[in-house]
Design a protein around this nucleic acid. Structure first.
Lengths: 335, 335
DNA sequence: ATGAAAGCGCTAACAA
DNA sequence: TTGTTAGCGCTTTCAT
C-alpha cells in the first residue's frame, strides 16, 4: 500500500504538505502542489480511511438506517437510499447501510464507535425508540419522516397534509362531492408512522372547506382486500365519484375492479393516487397523482446532514411541497 | 469518548489485556475477564472503528455495489441489499452502500483506501468493466451474477438455465407443445447481463428434449408493449398455449390482456413466471412461478465473502437451484 | 496469564 | 509557504 509518507518522499516534500495538498486547508505554491499531485497520481496513492478517521475524528461516512419492514413500498425506500448514496458522494461521504434489525442499539454502536459522522433515519415513527438515544448523542442526524416531538431534530418529509388537501382540491374542482380515501394497511396506522394520518387530516380539512363528504378506509393491498373495501365503500356511500388512493398495492386492483363493475375511469369515477411517479405512469390507466418525491427526500436529507456537519446546521422541519400531475384518471364528476 | 486505555485503568489491567478480552485472541483468567467486561459495560465503552481499522488493517466493512439502473426490478435489489446487510451483521461486518455511478473508479477507491475489506458486486455484466480492477486488487470479492469469464472469481447466482428448463418441464408435463417466452426489455439483452440469455438457453435445451416449440420475444414492460408483443406471438404461433414470463412489469399486463381476449388462465393458456414470490402471489391470478431467491443470494454472497476473509476462501461459482411453485396459472393444455 | 511498547497512516498544532 | 512532531486509539509482537 502506498502511504502518504511515500508520496512525500517521492515529491520531495514533507508529509504535512501532502496532507495539506489533499485537504486544501492551507495554501500551497503552485509548483509544489503540482509535484505532489503528480506523485499521487504516479504512485496511485489513496489515503487510508482508518488512519484518516483516527487522526481527524471524522470518518466521512453517513449511516443510513432503513427499516426492514415489508409493508412499506420498497421501490421508494430504494430510491431514497440510492439518492442518499449518490448525493453523499458528491459531498465526499460514503453511506453505511444499517437495517432496522439492530434497533436502537445500532444508534449506540455507530455513534460509540465513531463509525459514522452522522445518521439518516428512514421510516421514523411518531414515538420512535431511536430518538431518545439520538438526542443524547452529539452525532448529527436527520430524520426522513416526522415524529410527534421534533424538538431539537432535523426532519425531511413530504407535506402529507398539503398532499391530502391538494387531492381534494383537485377533485372538488372537478365537481366531485363524495370522495373515498383508500388508505394504507391498518398496520401502518397502528404503527403510527404519522404520514398516513397526516394525509387524512389534510383531506378532511380541505373537504370541510370545500363542502365535500369524505369516507376513509384503510386497506391491505391485493385483490381480495380491495374488492371487499370497495364494495363496503359503495354500500355506505353509493354516490361516491372520487377516490384518493394512498396504497401502491391497492392501485391496480382498484382499477381492475372498477372496470369489472362497469364503472369507467374517469367518466364515472375519478381516481387520484398518492404514489411514486412510476406507479402512476405505468398503471393500466395513467393516474392523476401526487408523487412521493423519493429522490428529493434522499437528497435533501443528505444536504441537511452535511450542513449540520459543517456547522451550518439547522434544527428544522423541512416539508416538501406536493405536486399534483393531472393524467387520465380524473375528470368532471358525472351528472 | 471512552477509550480502551480508560477501560484498562478502570479495570486495573493493561491496555493489551482489554484488547485481548475483546478479541479473544489469547486466554484471559476468568476474574480478569470479568473485571474488564464489567468496566466496559460500566463506562459504556465502544472500540473506535478508525483506530481499530488502522491498527489491524481490517475495517470490518463490506462494500456493496448496487446498480442504479432503473430497468432492473427494484424490490429484488433491495431484498438482496437488506439480506446482505443483516447477514453481514451476524458476522460482525457493516455494509457500505455504493451505487454504480462511480463505476470502476469505486473499486479502486474502496480498495485503495482500505475502507472495506471486501466487495460484493450486484448486477454483474458479462464483460463487466469492474472485473479487471477487481482481479488486480487483493481484496476479497463476490459477484452476484455471472460474467463471461469467472476465472479467479467467486460468483453467486440463481441457476437461470435450470430455471428455464424447469419451466419448460412443467409446461411440457402438462401437455403444452407450443410455448412463448416473454423476456426482459431488449436493453437487458443488449447489456449482456447474461441471466436473460441463460434462461432462454435453458428453455431451448429442455424444449428440444421434450419436443416443445419455443418462440422467444423480449418485451419492454407496460400495457402497450405487452399488447403488441402478445399479438405478434399469436400471429406467428396461433397454437401457443404456454407462456414463460421473465419480466415483472409484463406480468400484470399479460394477464389483463389474455383476460380481455377471452383466453382463460389456466384453462386456455398457462403462464409460468420467473419473478419474486411476492409478485407471483399478488398477481391477479396467483402465478405458478420460479422465485428469484433474493434473500438467499444476498446471504450466500456474504457467507462466501466472509469465508474468503477468513482464508477458507473458494473461487467458485455457486448456482442456486431453482424451485418451481405451482399456483393457479398453469393447467393441462387444452384439447 | 499479563504487561510494555512499537507502530498503523494520517492530521493539525506549532515552528520557522 | 513549508517542515517538524505529537498524538489519534487500537493491535500485536516481544518480554516476563
Amino acid at each position: 500500500m502506498v502511504t502518504l509518507a511515500e508520496v512525500a518522499q517521492h515529491a520531495g516534500v514533507s508529509a504535512s504538505t501532502v496532507s495539506y495538498v489533499l485537504s486544501g486547508k492551507r495554501s500551497i505554491s503552485v509548483p509544489t502542489r503540482e509535484r505532489v499531485e503528480q506523485s499521487i497520481k504516479q504512485l496511485g496513492y489513496h489515503p487510508n480511511a482508518g488512519a484518516r478517521a483516527l487522526a481527524s475524528s471524522r470518518s466521512n461516512i453517513i449511516a443510513l438506517m432503513v427499516p426492514l419492514r415489508t409493508d412499506m413500498y420498497v421501490p421508494v425506500m430504494m430510491e431514497i437510499a440510492i439518492a442518499v448514496a449518490t448525493t453523499a458522494r458528491t459531498h465526499g461521504y460514503d453511506v453505511l447501510l444499517l437495517t432496522g434489525e439492530e434497533g436502537p442499539a445500532a444508534v449506540r454502536r455507530i455513534a460509540g464507535s465513531s463509525l459514522a459522522d452522522a445518521m439518516i433515519l428512514m421510516d421514523v415513527e411518531l414515538h420512535d425508540e431511536r430518538l431518545p438515544l439520538l438526542r443524547e448523542t452529539d452525532r448529527a442526524a436527520v430524520l426522513i419522516g416526522l415524529p410527534a416531538d421534533t424538538d431539537g431534530l432535523t426532519c425531511v418529509d413530504l407535506d402529507f397534509e398539503a398532499t391530502g388537501a391538494l387531492c381534494v382540491e383537485h377533485l372538488a374542482g372537478l365537481g366531485h362531492r363524495e370522495v373515498a380515501v383508500i388508505g394504507e394497511a391498518a398496520a401502518v396506522y397502528e404503527r403510527h408512522t404519522g404520514f398516513a394520518e397526516r394525509t387524512v387530516d389534510g383531506v378532511r380539512a380541505k373537504a370541510r372547506e370545500a363542502g365535500v363528504r369524505v369516507l376513509h378506509r384503510p386497506c391491505e393491498g391485493g385483490y381480495p382486500a380491495m374488492a371487499q373495501t370497495l364494495s363496503r365503500i359503495f354500500d355506505e356511500r353509493p354516490g361516491t365519484t372520487g377516490f384518493i388512493v394512498q396504497n401502491e398495492s391497492a392501485v391496480e386492483p382498484l382499477l381492475n375492479l372498477l372496470r369489472q363493475q362497469g364503472r369507467a375511469v374517469p367518466e364515472d369515477v375519478s381516481v387520484v393516487a398518492i404514489c411514486p411517479e412510476q406507479v402512476a405512469a405505468q398503471a393500466s390507466v395513467r393516474l392523476t397523482s401526487v408523487a412521493i418525491p423519493a429522490q428529493e427526500m434522499g437528497r435533501r436529507s443528505v444536504e441537511q446532514v452535511v450542513a449540520k456537519l459543517s456547522g451550518r446546521g439547522t434544527d428544522e422541519v423541512e416539508l416538501l411541497a406536493p405536486e399534483l400531475t393531472v393524467r387520465e384518471s380524473t375528470g368532471p364528476a358525472p351528472g
